[in-house]
């Protein structure tokens, strides 16, 4: 009986190791950036754009150019989230769109040109 038990231990341990190896399949790492607009840790250039947009809104852009301002705010949120999530290419694209929008809003005060086309 002792021999039998000794013979069983080896497959039991082997089976347990195999089971543990199978159960320990790795999970992805935790994501970030889902609510990055509530945080201030953004890139310096994006911070500058955000300040320009904020100033334009204080000057009444939300009333005079409501659609463009809303679009800019949405782009700002996207840029902040992609930056925080480490999506560099997506961030670059969002940043460029946001820069164009902010420049358009700012230029309305001195130009009679209509809003520029959206860049996608």
């Amino acid at each position: 009986m002792r021999i039998c038990i000794r013979k069983l231990i080896t497959p039991i341990i082997f089976s347990a190791l195999c089971t543990m190896n199978a159960a320990c399949t790795p999970w992805p790492i935790e994501g970030t950036g889902g609510f990055a607009e509530r945080r201030s840790s953004v890139s310096p250039e994006l911070s500058d754009l955000a300040n320009r947009l904020k100033y334009a809104i204080e000057q009444g852009a939300r009333t005079s150019y409501a659609a463009q301002t809303a679009e800019a705010e949405l782009q700002l949120t996207r840029a902040q989230r992609t930056w925080d999530a480490g999506f560099i290419e997506d961030y670059t694209k969002n940043y460029q769109i946001l820069e164009v929008l902010v420049r358009d809003i700012e230029s309305h005060g001195t130009s009679t040109q209509g809003p520029r086309k959206r860049i996608n």
Binding site: P28, I29, E30, G31, T32, G33, G34, R38, R39, F87
Partner: peptide, 23 residues
């Protein structure tokens, strides 16, 4: 890429930095 979101842990800590980006 795949990312993990621990709702249970977030509910306990409220750490918004743990919220993954969703688009």
């Amino acid at each position: 890429q795949a990312r993990l979101f621990d709702l249970f842990s977030f509910a306990k800590t409220g750490d918004i930095s743990k919220l993954p980006i969703v688009r």
